[in-house]
């Protein structure tokens, strides 16, 4: 990898200063994507600004109608957290299915959401549950956050500090994992809030997306039978050595039905 400088800020304010002092600084969270990327010389930051020692960026707190996960909280913590397991079991399950145990001990929710990998799990949770992304500058609704492949609404130097998940009445998450990487070939998060239903799909397209037709059908009747084949056309889906776009379109229906069944218990 190319050489870089190291900065170890201890507060969000220091993070801004560290970034300002760097020509082309990059945040380092858990490093489970960034370090392999650096090894391949696919990135050449002047400095790595480690977020590991920044005060107040880790932990999980449950409120009355939402659960807040700080950005540097690792996947294993989310998967094992008692409040999340009881209030949003689908979120705990999602976190427990990312990568492998070692990756889950290092990888963070903030890093994953900021990276917005098209096949990552967390974007489906954030969009499917209608979470709010809290940053060093503002609050961003999930619907406005994921803007394209590896692209988000974050400004240059804007730091995710926490993700706030509203607690749904019911939710389910089903992933068809790539057997080698455990990334989502396709995965679907379904969440029900009173008369509102949200369906988010990851792995299938260039960026996580919602499926309005499924949401309407599930709002009318929250049952697996409401999901019909063909609700997501194959045209714009990913087509690669792992799966054809037609297969992915088919999987979306199958996994959505299973996610609804899981949500219904």
């Amino acid at each position: 990898m190319y050489d870089f400088g190291i900065k170890n800020p201890t507060s969000v304010d220091d993070v801004k200063t560290a970034l300002g002092e760097s020509d082309d600084g990059q945040f380092l969270a858990g490093g489970q994507t960034l370090i392999p990327v650096l090894k391949q010389r696919l990135a050449m930051p002047s400095d790595l600004i480690s977020l590991a020692r920044v005060d107040g960026l880790s932990g999980i707190s449950a409120g009355g109608d939402s659960i807040s996960v700080k950005a540097m909280t690792c996947h294993a913590e989310v998967a094992a957290n008692a409040d999340i397991k009881s209030a949003i079991p689908a979120l705990a399950k999602l976190a427990g299915g990312i990568g492998d145990p070692h990756v889950r001990n290092r990888g963070t929710i903030g890093g994953s959401v900021a990276n917005n990998d098209p096949a990552a799990d967390y974007p489906a949770a954030v969009l499917g549950l209608g979470a709010t992304v809290v940053t060093s500058e503002r609050e961003i609704e999930a619907d406005n956050f994921f803007t394209g492949m590896f692209d988000t609404a974050l400004n240059e130097g804007e730091l995710i500090t926490e993700i706030s998940f509203p607690i749904p009445e019911a939710a389910g998450y089903i992933k068809f994992p790539n057997p080698a990487t455990r990334y989502a070939l396709v995965a679907v998060m379904v969440a029900k809030f009173g008369n509102t239903v949200r369906v988010a799909v990851t792995g299938a397209g260039p960026c996580v997306f919602r499926v309005a037709e499924m949401e309407q059908a599930l709002t009318a009747s929250f049952s697996p039978d409401s999901i019909k084949d063909g609700m997501v056309p194959a045209d714009d889906l990913n087509n690669d050595i792992h799966a054809s776009r037609e297969y992915r379109a088919h999987l979306i229906g199958v996994l959505a039905r299973r996610a609804v069944a899981e949500a219904n218990g």
Partner: peptide
């Protein structure tokens, strides 16, 4: 390359020594 870091297993090739 798995080792434990503060009791948790990590892939030591995906962690910088200074971390």
């Amino acid at each position: 390359c798995v080792v434990t870091l503060d009791g948790k297993t990590v892939k030591s090739c995906a962690v910088f020594a200074w971390e």
